[in-house]
Structure formats: structure tokens, C-alpha cells
Computed example of a mutant assay.
Amino acid sequence: MNRPLSSAERSAARRQDWLKGEAEKARESRGEAGQMEFWLRLARSRMAKDVKAGRGDVYPGFALVCRLFITALDQRVEGDGRIWNDLLRYAEQVVTKHPPRN
């Protein structure tokens, strides 16, 4: 038998639904680029909140993720798609297991 969701769990579920809905709206209106822009705006907002909370290491972390992404793109252009494929596979595993919160 399932127990009723707590208010925190309901709030998290509503947030998940909102994120999915907004990402889908962005995709419908502007395609994949619109969805990408939505996630970039969300990431920028979250980074600003982290910096205000005293977690300034978010900037070098994001820079490193961007460098990884560019390296994967460059390697793919050169004919070696292993890093790109590994990056996408890992990213899919992480976001499936840990969907965005708050």
C-alpha cells in the first residue's frame, strides 16, 4: 500500500513537472536550440544562487564542464566519437537517476 506524499514530495513532483513542461514548451517553440537555451538560463540562475550562498567553486566547475564538452566536440570532428558517445551516455545516466530539483 502506498502512503500519501508529503508536502515536500508533492512540491518536488510539481517542480519536476514544471521543468519538463517548460523544456518541452521551449522545444516546441524554438526546437532543440530553444530547449538548450532554457537549460542554459536555468543553469545560469542556479550558479548565481550558489555564488550568493558562498559556493563560488561553481564557476570553475562549469568552465571545466564546458571544456569537456568542447573537447568531445573537437574529437568528434576529428573522427573520434568515443568521448562524445561516453559523455552523452554518462549524462543520460546521471540525469535519469538524479533529475533536477528546486
Results as ranks from 00 to 15, higher is better:
1 M>H: 14
1 M>G: 14
1 M>Y: 04
2 N>T: 15
3 R>N: 08
5 L>K: 14
5 L>T: 05
6 S>M: 05
6 S>H: 08
6 S>V: 04
7 S>V: 15
8 A>V: 10
8 A>R: 13
9 E>F: 04
11 S>C: 01
12 A>W: 09
13 A>F: 02
14 R>Y: 13
15 R>H: 12
16 Q>D: 03
16 Q>A: 15
16 Q>E: 09
17 D>R: 12
19 L>Y: 10
20 K>V: 12
21 G>C: 02
21 G>I: 04
22 E>G: 00
22 E>Y: 06
23 A>R: 03
23 A>G: 11
24 E>L: 13
25 K>P: 00
26 A>E: 10
28 E>R: 12
30 R>N: 10
31 G>S: 03
31 G>C: 02
32 E>S: 06
33 A>R: 03
33 A>M: 11
34 G>L: 05
35 Q>H: 06
36 M>E: 15
36 M>L: 13
38 F>P: 04
38 F>H: 11
38 F>N: 05
39 W>N: 00
39 W>R: 07
39 W>V: 01
41 R>G: 11
42 L>C: 02
42 L>H: 07
42 L>E: 14
43 A>C: 07
43 A>S: 14
44 R>W: 13
46 R>N: 03
46 R>H: 07
46 R>E: 14
47 M>T: 08
48 A>E: 03
48 A>P: 00
50 D>V: 00
50 D>G: 06
51 V>C: 00
51 V>G: 02
51 V>I: 15
54 G>S: 07
55 R>D: 08
55 R>L: 08
56 G>Q: 11
56 G>L: 07
57 D>C: 00
58 V>T: 08
58 V>R: 00
58 V>Q: 02
59 Y>Q: 11
60 P>D: 00
60 P>Y: 04
61 G>H: 08
61 G>L: 11
63 A>K: 13
63 A>R: 14
63 A>Y: 01
64 L>P: 00
64 L>C: 02
66 C>W: 11
66 C>V: 12
66 C>P: 00
66 C>I: 11
67 R>Q: 06
68 L>T: 06
69 F>Y: 09
69 F>A: 12
69 F>R: 07
69 F>W: 13
70 I>V: 09
70 I>F: 05
70 I>Q: 06
73 L>E: 10
73 L>V: 08
74 D>P: 00
74 D>F: 06
75 Q>S: 09
77 V>S: 01
77 V>C: 01
77 V>E: 06
78 E>S: 12
78 E>F: 13
79 G>R: 05
81 G>P: 13
82 R>N: 06
82 R>K: 10
84 W>T: 05
84 W>A: 13
85 N>T: 11
85 N>Y: 02
85 N>R: 09
86 D>Q: 14
86 D>I: 04
87 L>P: 03
87 L>A: 08
90 Y>S: 10
91 A>L: 11
92 E>Y: 10
92 E>W: 02
92 E>T: 03
96 T>L: 10
96 T>Q: 12
97 K>N: 07
98 H>Y: 15
100 P>I: 08
100 P>A: 01
101 R>M: 09
101 R>L: 09
101 R>W: 04
